[in-house]
């Protein structure tokens, strides 16, 4: 276990070393790749200007709301979709169709309908994650072993009880897994939305910095988004351990 941990540290160190070498060694111009210290100084500047917290918060807020809305609607729908041929027949064609529309292609429409405020960002994130999530959760609930359902039926469970005591708990590890994957996509769609039209947020900051050739600031933005990603992932792993302590997934491979 500790050896695996060491490998993580090693790769991080190597990447950081290459970064230092390229910048402090003068191999790459600061205009294209700022040095680590320049990025840190930029973060300090951003903090002093009050933008670090504000932009980060704006972005986190949009991702959280958009993703939560998608999760609370997609999970129940997906669970039923995976088990009911009727619901499948009604919704599947539409969901499959929308799923293949690139969200980026829907951004102009969302701006037309919703303006460029938070609601539009939330809508883009929702559109980007909801349809994928529904189908992923449907797959999870469809793969609940038939004999589990049969066993619960012979123990007297009715349809509601089969859902509550068998399908939902059995699907939980898969649900957590897919939520963890889709929240990563939510960040992607947020940045897409903020790059196109916004007046705050990390994506907006990156776009504006590019116009003014503030590469330091671009990298500061990228660093924050990356760190937030790592943090979210870590939180999800912890949460999975808490929610499904019995699952091999929660046990982790570490």
């Amino acid at each position: 276990m500790f050896r695996v941990h060491h490998l993580t540290i090693l790769t991080t160190a190597i990447l950081f070393g290459i970064w230092c070498l390229l910048t402090y060694g003068g191999i790459v111009s600061p205009l294209f790749l700022p040095s680590p210290s320049a990025v840190v100084l930029e973060l300090v500047d951003l903090y002093r200007e009050g933008l670090l917290i504000k932009y980060t918060w704006d972005s986190v807020y949009r991702v959280t709301v958009g993703f939560l809305l998608a999760a609370v609607t997609a999970v129940p729908l997906g669970l039923v979709l995976g088990r009911s041929r009727i619901v499948e027949a009604i919704t599947q064609p539409f969901i499959e169709f929308v799923r293949y529309l690139p969200v980026v292609a829907l951004v102009p429409l969302t701006i037309l309908y919703l303006g460029i405020g938070d609601i539009q960002k939330v809508a883009v994130i929702f559109l980007g994650t909801f349809f994928q999530l529904v189908l992923m959760i449907a797959d999870v609930s469809a793969s609940v072993p038939r004999d589990f359902i049969r066993a619960s039926a012979t123990l007297g469970a009715n349809t509601y009880q089969v859902y509550r005591y068998v399908i939902i708990p059995c699907s939980l590890p898969g649900i957590m897994d897919n939520l963890r994957i889709t929240i990563g996509w939510a960040w992607t769609y947020l940045v897409v939305a903020e790059l196109v039209a916004a007046n705050s947020g990390l994506g907006f900051m990156i776009l504006r910095s590019q116009r003014f050739l503030q590469t330091d600031r671009i990298f500061a933005g990228l660093l924050i988004i990356g760190l937030l990603g790592v943090l979210t992932d870590w939180l999800f792993r912890k949460l999975t351990k808490l929610v499904v302590p019995w699952s091999e997934k929660a046990g982790g491979k570490s």
């Binding site: 619960s152 123990l155 005591y165 059995c170």
Partner: peptide, 28 residues
């Protein structure tokens, strides 16, 4: 529930402990 069944495949619910598995029908 008047006809209990034991399957060839392992059908214990992995999210429940032994006790909770045995209690399942009673819970229902």
């Amino acid at each position: 529930a008047d006809r209990g069944m034991v399957f060839q495949s392992y059908t214990l619910f992995p999210w429940y402990t032994v006790r909770k598995n045995v209690e399942f029908g009673l819970l229902i």
